[in-house]
Write a protein that binds this DNA or RNA. Structure first.
Length: 566
DNA sequence: GAGTTTGAAACT
DNA sequence: CAGTTTCAAACTC
């Protein structure tokens, strides 16, 4: 099923890289079926529960992880095609899944030295058909592709995050192609090493997690995104929104690496629930990582690498303990490990970063939050943290959740039309008052993307635009202006500025090219999605686009059915 | 990095 | 079920 070894070997010849398109591997890859929506991997929760799918052996078996760990260290010039590993892969991967998604995506990005084959599905088709979102976060375009293509002879490790394909560090084009074919879905479950859309800094990438931490804008808690994105990809074939560093990561050798080698990448012992990430970095000191306090444990993953936990029992070697504890917790609350966020599939958009990136507009926290002081505007709030609005289930006080207030209002990005100004005094006031926070908010323009995902489209087809609602019954708050979606589309085509708190100072070009704009653009008057390439950066057909120093490869996703797989 | 705040989880 | 305690993440300085 996988790449014939011969071809793989052939790939090692640097010269062949330049003639990839003629290589058997390339042909093989192209012969594979086009990208298809993948909903495969069960997002159903974890182990223990009756309806839960059993975790792939690859995650439960330490030795497998060792494999993986070693894989990262493997000489990239060497083709690690361990039979055992491949077998493990075969065991874990639904055959039809991602047959060539990794490679296809991957190849698409090799538009530098490696020419894209004309037969490769065009972006329009891909985007509209597969409804993928593929946002690459990388230093820059050239770097992205370069990393991809260059043989890291200089020990640089480059990895390119390709949504599901989740390339790995130490990946050069050879390995990339090779692994893309060979590894497929394993990566998706192997979240830690999952995707990286970033060219790694000179480092020996072992854990993607750390890169996330080392990125410039230190986002808080974005570690969630990784698996979230991956899962999205799996569920919906939506290539992830790998836009924030959390989504990506290449780590350096070191403690992480050591642990990675020792235990392998962080694995799931259960399947992290929808919206949960398998890429946690806990810091537990007293819970032994055996309580839900522990994010790793709660997410269904073992602690490894980046974790700074003390007396951690959430490790493969304590699998029995972990399982027992988990069962105990589940006996107390059968849904303890169930996805906290549930959502519908009929949402209009799904964007954002990290866990939120897969949060459909209608998604809501299952249990609701209970915030008293944070106004649901900080990540203390599980709803906010999950990128969903508060709901009737919430018992929060003074809810101002930007993703949707308990009272049904939605606050989000500033919206200014045309030459317009935009900010009302209140807006500015709010901006000011919230800037301190916002600046530290996920670099992810969370308010930028996420809320958009929840553009409140009313039953009468009205798109409620931003309002920074000030308080529940906010004083002078302007009630949401409303635009018909049609108008939105028109406006976006003419000129619409979308100003976020974070990016207000950005130049107009960036603003216009903001994801939100693109998304709006992507909304045709009849609510159909428009081809992305036309939307994304008219100047270049390249799927790469700039976004505040990040390259975003966008496409518009259809919503995976997030109907909880209970 | 240390200390504080916060709210979920756990406990009573 | 409500109140309290514990806990770790989020946040601030």
């Amino acid at each position: 099923m996988d790449t014939p070894p011969k071809n793989v070997t052939q790939m090692e010849n640097p010269i062949s890289k330049l003639k990839l398109e003629n290589s058997p591997v390339f042909n093989y890859i192209n012969s594979l079926s086009p990208i298809k929506p993948v909903r495969s991997l069960p997002i159903a929760q974890t182990f223990g529960s009756l309806s839960y799918s059993s975790p792939p052996s690859v995650f439960t078996s330490p030795h497998v992880s060792s494999h993986k760990g070693s894989r990262f260290k493997s000489d990239h010039n060497h083709v690690p095609a361990s039979v055992g590993e491949d077998e493990a892969l075969h065991e874990t991967e639904p055959p039809q899944i991602l047959q060539n998604e990794c490679t296809t995506d991957l190849l698409k990005m090799c538009d530098g030295n490696v020419k894209q084959k004309s037969e490769t599905p065009d972006w329009d088709a891909m985007i509209s058909d597969s409804s993928d979102i593929l946002i690459l976060d990388s230093v820059n375009d050239s770097e992205a592709s370069r990393c991809f293509l260059e043989r890291p002879s200089d020990s640089k490790t480059c990895s390119l995050g390709v949504a599901k394909s989740t390339l790995e560090p130490l990946m050069n084009i050879d390995d990339a192609l090779h692994r893309g074919v060979r590894r497929r879905c394993l990566d998706f479950e192997q979240t830690p090493v999952a995707s990286s859309s970033r060219c790694a800094v000179p480092s020996i990438g072992l854990h993607f997690n750390t890169i996330a931490m080392s990125s410039n804008d230190n986002n808080v808690g974005n570690e969630y995104s990784l698996s979230g994105n991956i899962k999205v990809g799996l569920q919906s074939s939506i290539t992830s929104v790998l836009n924030s560093q959390d989504n990506v990561g290449v780590s350096e050798t070191g403690e992480d690496a050591g642990q990675g080698v020792e235990e392998g990448p962080k694995r799931k012992f259960g399947q992290a629930g929808e919206g949960e990430s398998s890429c946690k970095r806990c810091n537990c000191k007293r819970s032994k990582c055996l309580k839900l306090y522990c994010e790793c444990f709660a997410a269904g993953v073992y602690c490894i690498g980046p974790c700074s936990c003390v007396d951690c029992f959430n490790k493969p070697i304590h699998e029995d303990t972990v399982m027992a504890t988990r069962k105990q917790i589940e006996s107390r609350n059968p849904l303890a490990f169930a996805p906290k966020v549930i959502g519908n599939s009929d949402s209009i958009m799904e964007v954002g970063d990290d866990a939120k990136s897969k949060t459909p507009a209608s998604a809501r926290h299952k249990r609701g939050c209970n915030c008293k002081k944070s106004n649901c505007l900080k990540k203390y709030c599980e709803c906010y943290q999950s990128g969903v609005g508060c709901s009737i289930n919430c018992r929060c006080e003074g809810c101002k959740n930007a993703f949707g207030r308990k009272d049904g209002l939605t606050c989000f990005t500033y919206f200014s039309v045309s030459a317009g100004s935009s900010f009302t005094s209140m807006d500015k006031e709010n901006e000011t008052s919230s800037r301190g926070r916002t600046e530290k908010q996920p670099s992810t323009p969370m308010p930028l993307r996420q809320p958009l995902a929840q553009l409140p489209i009313s039953s009468n087809n009205m798109l409620l635009t931003h309002q920074h609602l000030h308080g529940a019954s906010g004083s002078s708050l302007h009630m949401s202006q409303s635009f018909r979606r049609q108008d939105m589309s028109l406006m976006s085509h003419s000129k619409i500025e979308i100003i976020t708190e974070e990016r207000r100072a950005d130049n107009i070009e960036n603003l216009i090219e903001s994801p939100m704009t693109n998304m709006i653009n992507a909304l045709s008057p009849n609510s159909k999605r428009l081809s992305l390439p036309h939307v994304v950066g008219s100047s270049e057909l390249s799927p790469w686009r700039r976004n505040g120093g990040r390259k975003l490869l966008l496409s518009i996703p259809t919503f995976p059915s997030l109907t909880p797989h209970h």
